[in-house]
C-alpha cells in the first residue's frame, strides 16, 4: 500500500485516455493511491531543440510536486524521459508503472483468467529502453508479466526497435515502413506501453490486436471490457 505522485501528461488526457484509465484502475487493484501533481504542464515531448528550454518546461512539474511526493508514476515514455532529464540529482523517483510490476505486487493479483495458448509480442519501443541511465531497469518486465499468467511471448529482437511513431503526422510513409518491419518479424497480439507505439501499431497492423499491458492485466483480473 503506497501513495504515489502521478503525472499523466497530455496524451493521457486525450488520445491515450485508455492508458490513463488502465494505470489508475491497476494501481487501485494493487492497493496504491495516486495523487495527481497539481497544475501539471506538458513535458515538452520531443518537440524542443533547446535542451535548456525543454528541461525548464519539464522541471516545472517537479517544482509543483515538491513537498507532495517523491515517487512519481509517469506512464508516457516521452514524459518519463523528460522528467528524468529534468532531475539529474534524482531528487525524485520517476517511475514507469511497469516498475510497479515486481514479483511482490504481481503475487497480489487475483487471477481470474489466464493467457494460456495465446501469443503476444511485448513491444517497448524506444524511450523506455534508451538512452541508458533513463531506461527501466528490468528490460524483460512485460515478458515476465505475460509469462507469469501463462501467455507465450515472441519478438525479443524487435522489442526495442523504433515504430517511427513521432513521424506519423510528418512523414507517414516512414512510420508505415518502420512499423511494418517490426510487425512482419513478430506474431500475435502486440502489447505496448507507449501512446505513440499504440497509434503507429494500430494504424499499420492488419488482423492483429494492439493492446496496452494495463488492459491485458485487467483482463487477467477478470475485468469486463478491458480488451
Amino acid at each position: 500500500m503506497m501513495e504515489y505522485g502521478y503525472y499523466p501528461g497530455c496524451s493521457l488526457t486525450g488520445s491515450a485516455k485508455r492508458l490513463d484509465q488502465g494505470v489508475r484502475r491497476l494501481c487501485k487493484k494493487l492497493g496504491h493511491s495516486l495523487a495527481e501533481i497539481p497544475d501539471w504542464n506538458c513535458c515538452g515531448a520531443l518537440e524542443y531543440g533547446d535542451r535548456n528550454e525543454l528541461v525548464s518546461i519539464s522541471g516545472e512539474n517537479l517544482k509543483k510536486a515538491q513537498g507532495i511526493c517523491r515517487e512519481i508514476i509517469v506512464p508516457c515514455p516521452a514524459c518519463y524521459k523528460n522528467l528524468k532529464d529534468a532531475d539529474p540529482e534524482r531528487s525524485f523517483n520517476i517511475m514507469s508503472p511497469l516498475e510497479l510490476l515486481n514479483p511482490e505486487n504481481l503475487s497480489q493479483i487475483e487471477q481470474k483468467r489466464d493467457l494460456k495458448g495465446q501469443v503476444f509480442f511485448p513491444y517497448y519501443g524506444c524511450l523506455l529502453m534508451r538512452p541508458e541511465g533513463n531506461s527501466i531497469k528490468n528490460r524483460n518486465i512485460m515478458e515476465d508479466t505475460i509469462s507469469a499468467f501463462g501467455g507465450d511471448v515472441n519478438g525479443e529482437n524487435m522489442k526495442d526497435r523504433c515504430c517511427g511513431g513521432n513521424q506519423l503526422f510528418l512523414n507517414k510513409w516512414a512510420t508505415e515502413r518502420l512499423s511494418t518491419l517490426i510487425l512482419g518479424k513478430t506474431k500475435g497480439t502486440v502489447v505496448v506501453f507507449c501512446p505513440f507505439c499504440h497509434m503507429a501499431m494500430k494504424t499499420f497492423a492488419t488482423g492483429r490486436k494492439v493492446v496496452y499491458l494495463t488492459d491485458l492485466l485487467l483482463y487477467v483480473m477478470g475485468e469486463s471490457n478491458s480488451l
Binding site: 497544475d39 528541461v55 525548464s56 516545472e60 540529482e89
Partner: peptide, 30 residues
C-alpha cells in the same frame, strides 16, 4: 482515440523568477 474534453489552462508553465537560478540540465549531460 477520439473523445472530447475541454482544454485545461495551466497556471504556471515557465519557471518563475523566484525559482530560476539552478539549471539542472548542465549536470544532466551524460
Amino acid at each position: 482515440y477520439a473523445g472530447f474534453h475541454l482544454p485545461h489552462k495551466v497556471k504556471r508553465l515557465k519557471p518563475t523568477n523566484a525559482s530560476k537560478g539552478s539549471n539542472p540540465s548542465e549536470e544532466g549531460r551524460s
